[in-house]
Amino acid sequence: MQLSKGPCVKIEKRIAEKIRKILINMNLFDDTRKIISENDYIIIPILRWPSEEELDIIKNIAEVEIIDMELPSHKKRFKNLIEVLDGRLPPYLLTLLPRSYDIIGDIGVIEDLDTELLPYKGIIGKALMELHSNLKTVLLKIGKVNGKYRIPKYEVIAGEEKYNTIHTEYGVKLKIDLQKAYYSPRLATEHNRVASQVKDGEIVVDMFSGIGSFALHIAKRVFAKVYAIDINPNAVNLIKENIKINKIKGEIIPLCGDVRDFSDILKRRADRVIMNLPGEAIEYINLALSFIKEKGGIIHFYAFSKDIEDTKTNLISRLNVKKYDIIHIKRVREVSPKEWQIVIDLSVMPF
């Protein structure tokens, strides 16, 4: 425990809170040191020895004793990485620090570091752990996302080598392994938004389910059936584990394989289809339409976009349906300068 010596006010417990408020109003209270109890007295730290006038004001309320005493220091609360690293990095580098990062359970993830910061990545990782005391690991995403399952690669820059954790979104527990399946906490609000629209009795096809985030949000809320499909067997195994650790009302049916392999068994079965594969979803729009019931349904379509109107126009040009209606469109998250992940919700009635 770190101790710090300085002037203090010693006061009887019965009047201590009133004196503390007065000291705050007089700009005397020292919030960098802790208030302690000593028998029938409270010891309140102050910033300096009070003037005679200030002491008279205090003593008009109660008898106090001004003493010099060591008290435990409060751990400084930092607001951001710049505050933590001020004095530890060259000043010009502070402006290059990432303004955003992800906290996934007890893992911190930094998406990108300026090349000038790379020699200091270990210091930055430790600073993030200081800023968020629950973190056990800090990872830096390295290289481009590629491969069949599109799983990012990470480098441990602080803490233990750890990639799996339990993360919570709106009360939904998610078991995550960042080495085995893709996950982004930046879609939590979107998971919740879509789930809030699903009604009891609906059948939902989640075409690119990942670890099952959309499916779990839905099944936790309502008595719906969700077909959660993913080509990555590790992701599907995580869906199964996540079903076990959540109390769900609905039914989740995990399916492993290319979504096109399920075209026959899911044809005209769905009230709602989720297409969260923003880089490629447009190529699957006809398949999604084949899943929608003859009476019509809802499609949640995700894409990367630099121009929302262009993306909407491209989507509409691909729709081979009796009728459609765009019911919602918005930016979900920024993925690079001037490029966003967007969502377009549309109601459709197939031929």
Score class of each variant (00 low, 15 high):
E251M: 12
F304P: 07
N234A: 14
E161C: 03
I35R: 07
A224Q: 04
G108S: 09
D114G: 07
G279A: 15
I35W: 06
D200K: 01
G6Y: 00
I67R: 09
S213L: 09
E38Q: 11
R221A: 09
P278M: 12
Y302K: 07
E339T: 12
I157D: 00
A195E: 02
P233Q: 05
L113P: 02
D177Y: 02
I299P: 03
I36H: 00
A303V: 09
G6S: 05
K295E: 15
D86V: 00
I203Y: 04
K59Q: 14
L140V: 05
P254D: 08
V204L: 05
L315S: 08
V343W: 03
I151W: 00
I22Q: 08
Y149N: 14
I342L: 12
A215M: 06
Q179N: 15
T165V: 15
V84D: 05
H74F: 15
L71C: 11
I342V: 14
D106P: 03
G250Q: 06
V156M: 04
I176T: 04
K18I: 14
R150F: 04
A181P: 01
G297A: 11
V205F: 06
G210T: 11
R331T: 10
A281V: 06
Q197E: 12
K249V: 10
I57Q: 09
L319R: 03
Y302F: 13
I36T: 11
P7V: 06
N232F: 01
H132T: 10
G105L: 05
I326D: 00
R33M: 10
G108Y: 02
I211K: 03
N39F: 10
N60A: 07
E280Y: 00
H167C: 11
